[in-house]
Design a protein around this nucleic acid. Structure first.
Lengths: 361, 361
DNA sequence: CTGAAAGCGCTAACAC
DNA sequence: GTGTTAGCGCTTTCAG
């Protein structure tokens, strides 16, 4: 009844004193399957509710040697994709009764290491993180942590435990193959600085390799220094690209947002996709499907990566065998072809109307 | 040197045994300002590094009664906005040396309660969460938790502790006022189901109120049942709206993504913004600024909300006085006017070119 | 500079 | 059904 005025939090001892039982009885009454008389439990639960008592999970963790949560450490970039991945992951874990606890987003391997140290210090049951690259110490700590480690998004060269992801390099090559087959020859690449977006860097690497392999070497690359303001950065980079090579005929972008920004800049310049310049991207988020024209984009199945990861975590937690025999699952990126790289644009209703208005003047 | 083969994690006792000192010395050696001889410390740190030792923060929390982290509990919707808010918040907290720990996103107050219980059980130093609504029990637990509570995003009717946010109702009214002043009379609203998006619901409420107040009562509302696939849902809802009232002259949307989808649908139908139908939205994210035409949108300063919240948390943690005297800061939404509701569209370069191609056939 | 003792809040393993 | 004892891994406090 009386509110806790003191700084001290209420403990089981308080509940025990109040209800005239031992601490152990309180502990049992608070669990769904503890053996306590109905009446005793009722009184204890009532007292707990009145005082707003909540178990101290630090103490529980210490006593049981089980923390009951799974750590999730993801990079800030690419946000839209990790958003979906995290959603799929969290939903899957919660559905299985496992609690995910997310670290703040990181911008580089060094920061990742800091966050992984913090996460491991809380003794998670398992840890899910992006495929890297990690710092050497980070990798070592993960190996020594003795818990299931699940690397997602990009497939690491040397997985620590389980891995579910795609190969960015292959993804880049794939798109390069497609664009060259479609006949594009003066191709640009738009992406962030690899120091904060290693994944985009690898994508670009694969893209470049394949282009060279196909004899398309006159490639222009334009990047930007920070992960924020992606559209504005991409728009600016596009302008530079167009200035450097006005005859550019295709631009591959590291994300749908960047691609959308590039598309707008091109249109403002009177360049129409795909006839004047093709725009392709990576991620296949909602925006790619809904923009006009639609953006040709590489799909990585972000939601399903999250769901698969949740599955692997849950199985690892249940089954020591499975946890001990790390699996590696390569996700094949799917090239989703849309109007930004293929087909001739027809004047849409909008254009017809403008045309009409234009001629009526 | 030898790897930890057993399930047991290494503890300070192991390090103490290995280096021939007491546990207490190990404890001191591990802290930056503990008084230990340089040589002893060196050996201890070396052993720790070799074994991949990391302190057990459950034990530290228990012993010191300080967990050293701040809990962050946010709703899934509106994702884009909370993304920015979380980023600003996390950056601010990390910069001040406070560790944020994020709960998975929730879809309703009941789920929020569950997550808040889990978070409070870990005894955070403070908790940051959306302004609600919360379940009664959730509010009560937050009050009894005896830690700084910071509610962000929307201003709660009855703040628990500090609050930094805007009034969705006022925001809705604001946009209604603007649209009616611009001369729009047949106005629709597009949003998600209030059960999972209470904030969008309040926005709609304010919007409706103001319209009624101004004698524009013939309002059409269209929503969707799930937080996912926002653009697809909004596109579908837009089609229904257009079918129900082909003469609709403006559509207010709960998010920029929804608005963008609506814009595309309208254009596909030959309706041009703003002359045939105006599109307005909420959030003022990158997309609103970069779409063509730009989307008129209500700006809430998401990043700064996060930064301000971090500031309040840090001050509360430092200053008991400040923590005890809850502040409430109302953020004024700014109406960012763009081409989707205002001005006459000029045929852009793209159109001119299409026009040209069209006439050359 | 180092160590021994006590205890943080809780639970496992036994008693009764 | 309930209580007792003994820790979980660490820090605080007090002695040296």
């Amino acid at each position: 009844m009386c509110k806790a005025d003191k700084r001290k939090k209420t403990t089981m001892a308080d509940l025990a004193r109040l209800t005239g039982v031992s601490v152990m009885t309180v502990s049992r009454a608070l669990k769904p399957n503890g053996s306590t008389s109905a009446e005793t439990r009722r009184r204890i639960l009532e007292a707990a509710e009145n005082l707003g008592y909540l178990v101290d999970r630090s103490a529980v963790s210490l006593a049981t040697q089980r923390s009951g949560f799974v750590a999730v450490v993801t990079p800030r970039s690419p946000e839209a994709l990790f958003q979906d991945i995290r959603n799929g992951l969290c939903d899957g874990l919660l559905a299985a009764g496992v609690e995910p606890l997310l670290s703040p987003p990181h911008d580089c391997p060094a920061q990742e290491e800091t966050l992984v140290v913090a996460a491991l210090s809380r003794r998670p049951e398992a840890i899910v993180l992006a495929g890297g690259p990690h710092t050497p110490r980070c990798s070592r700590l993960l190996e020594q942590a003795n818990i299931p480690v699940v690397e997602i998004f990009n497939l690491p060269k040397q997985p620590i435990g389980h891995a579910i992801g795609f190969c960015e390099h292959n993804a880049g090559r794939r798109m390069a193959r497609y664009l060259t087959k479609e006949g594009y020859r003066r191709i640009g690449f738009l992406g962030g600085d690899p120091s904060w977006d290693p994944c985009g860097g690898a994508l670009r690497g694969g893209f470049l390799d394949e282009l060279r392999h196909r004899g398309v070497s006159d490639l222009l690359v334009q990047g930007w220094p920070r992960p924020t303001m992606e559209m504005a950065s991409a728009a600016k980079a596009t302008r530079i690209l167009l200035r450097r090579d006005p005859d550019i005929d295709a631009i591959m972008c590291v994300s749908d947002k960047a691609a959308y920004a590039a598309l707008q800049v091109c249109e403002q310049r009177g360049l129409q996709a795909p006839c004047d310049v093709a725009i392709a991207s990576f991620g296949n988020t909602e925006l790619a499907a809904h923009s006009t024209p639609g953006l040709t984009s590489l799909d990585i199945g972000a939601c399903s990566i999250g769901a698969r990861a949740a599955d692997v975590v849950v199985r690892s937690l249940k089954d020591g065998q499975f946890a001990a025999a790390p699996s590696s699952e390569e996700i094949q990126t799917k090239l989703k072809e849309r109007g930004s790289t293929h087909g001739t644009p027809k004047p849409c209703a909008h254009t017809k109307q403008l045309l009409h208005a234009y001629m009526m003047r």
